[in-house]
Design a protein around this nucleic acid. Structure first.
Lengths: 143, 143
DNA sequence: AAAATTTAAGATAAAATTATCTTCATAATT
DNA sequence: AATTATGAAGATAATTTTATCTTAAATTTT
């Protein structure tokens, strides 16, 4: 459903939301080490997110990746949208080109409500909110 | 979430459930044409399903693939299990090695009920039942 | 201004998935 | 028995995704 890139991206963004600020920036290597994913691959993902203004970066000495307050207020779904595109949430689980409430595939009604709920969840909850659940120990991004 | 192989497999099996019998067998080409997927790839998938005794085949002249009554009584999840393995339903959507009700990832609670219901749906409904919904026009495997 | 450090960008490589092809074995028909 | 039609099996190829590497540009520190 989600590409590895999106999965890595979500975890990295939440990591940055938890730990970074304008004063404390992170290199791809630091983040990759912390959440156990390949660093050069993550670097590419972070670049892409930066271009879409979902995370922030400063280059040169003492540079790195970080999240501004504004960045943190964005819904997490922007991350998925940037990497995979939102169509991932709308695609038929059986790969049928036509699959809707009117013309459902055999498992549509078991799948559809949850795609909607997941999309809503990611659209309504900000990066900030979700990262706070991590800092409170309710959820995790590493274990 | 599901591989293309699994998606093709589900549709092909439901197609066979709808149309085939010991008297009326189908070649991979016929099925592939009917549901618009690549025939040689489907041939491989059908062979694999045959080995796992989820569908039936007879080779040689007038041979082909078909479903016995027994085959049709199986739950559809056997198809996914045979091709992808059931772990597909149990994996964390963020790819975390540990993700459970006790140790949830940030989107676990939005995802978990969905995976459970979908797995239940595929486990409880037989190939026969689901194919009947197709023949009644309630769902479709091609459009 | 030079050196050091860090992201940006583009090229390349490896791995996994999807797709095809070729040869072989089997069964029915003639 | 020969021919024909069909699935089985294994080899190969194409594509996509994932991962890495190299060079360039930018910024800070010295």
């Amino acid at each position: 459903m989600l590409s590895k890139s999106s999965k890595y991206a979500i975890r990295a963004v939440l990591y940055l939301a938890l730990h970074s600020s304008v004063e404390k920036k992170y290199s791809p290597i630091e983040i990759a080490d912390a959440i156990d994913i390949p660093a050069p691959f993550l670097a590419k993902i972070l670049q892409s997110l930066t271009k879409d203004d979902i995370i922030s970066s400063i280059r040169g000495r003492n540079g790195g990746f970080y999240l501004t307050k504004k960045n943190k207020k964005n819904p997490l779904i922007l991350v998925v949208n940037s990497i995979d595109g939102l169509h991932k949430f709308h695609e038929c689980l059986l790969g049928l080109p036509v699959c809707s409430d009117e013309n459902p595939c055999p498992i549509h009604h078991a799948v559809s409500p949850f795609k909607k709920q997941l999309e809503a969840e990611l659209s309504n909850k900000s990066i900030d909110t979700l990262s706070k659940e991590v800092s409170e120990g309710k959820t995790h991004i590493f274990l």
